[in-house]
């Protein structure tokens, strides 16, 4: 059963295609994740502070989240003037999805910061912006992590759909594999996608641990 696999990987052109599309996939996955998070933070903060904006922001995010990816990939060019097969369509769409997915968790995480902590920070003389960046945001990180992980994994799986409109990434292996037809190539594509999702997920967990050293203290109170 390994024979077809061996044959697949023994071809230099196969390896080259796989490597190239994998790199493209990584690029299209990470950029939306980072930009989406950076977008969701101020939006979530806005939803938290400005009460009347909360419903439209969350409602808007809900609708964006509902839109099927293929439809968004296709419609973006006529809305923002990108090329029909530009990777930008996928990147922008996934950025929107990521932000839409994260607005609510950001809001919830910020709301979950105990008020005694924010009050204490205020009493210590933090200005609002500094307080948000150095007190509230770090405390919100643990609650945010799981949502960011969901966004990352689903982004990585969604990018493949872009192959249907001619954008690169591991999805190419599926379209090419289907036309030929070539089951091995498709399986390789699926496995590569899942492995990438797993790797990024582990990376995020590591990042989370790095960002929140206090969570590792495990709640052991000295003297108890």
């Amino acid at each position: 059963m390994f024979e077809p696999l061996v044959r697949y990987f023994s071809s230099p052109s196969n390896r080259e295609v796989l490597f190239e599309q994998f790199a493209q996939h990584v690029y299209m996955a990470l950029v939306p994740l980072v930009v989406g998070v950076l977008l969701a933070l101020p939006l979530g903060r806005l939803a938290q502070r400005v009460r009347w904006l909360r419903a439209p922001l969350l409602g808007g995010a809900g609708i964006v989240y509902t839109l099927p990816s293929l439809a968004v990939f296709v419609l973006l060019p006529s809305l923002i003037g990108t090329g029909y097969t530009s990777p930008l369509n996928v990147i922008i769409a996934l950025t929107l999805y990521t932000a839409a997915l994260l607005v609510r968790p950001v809001l919830d995480a910020l709301e979950a910061v105990p008020s005694h902590v924010t009050t204490a920070a205020e009493a210590l003389g933090y200005r609002p912006r500094r307080r948000f960046l150095s007190v509230e945001l770090p405390l919100a990180v643990p609650a945010l992590t799981s949502a960011v992980r969901v966004a990352s994994v689903s982004n990585i799986s969604l990018i493949s759909v872009g192959a249907l409109i001619g954008v690169g990434g591991l999805g190419r292996l599926f379209t090419v594999g289907f036309e030929r037809p070539d089951v091995v190539q498709t399986v390789v594509g699926i496995v590569a996608t899942v492995l990438l999702a797993l790797a990024v997920d582990l990376l995020l967990v590591g990042l989370w641990r790095l960002l929140t050293p206090w969570e590792r203290a495990g709640g052991a109170v000295i003297g108890e």
């Binding site: 969604l158 594999g177 498709t186 594509g189 996608t193 899942v194 999702a197 997920d201």
Partner: peptide
């Protein structure tokens, strides 16, 4: 749940259709 989330839909669809 986590594993399923990572599965690329297009890959799954084409694989089943081919098989």
């Amino acid at each position: 749940g986590n594993a399923m989330r990572a599965l690329p839909t297009l890959g799954l669809v084409t694989l089943l259709a081919m098989m």
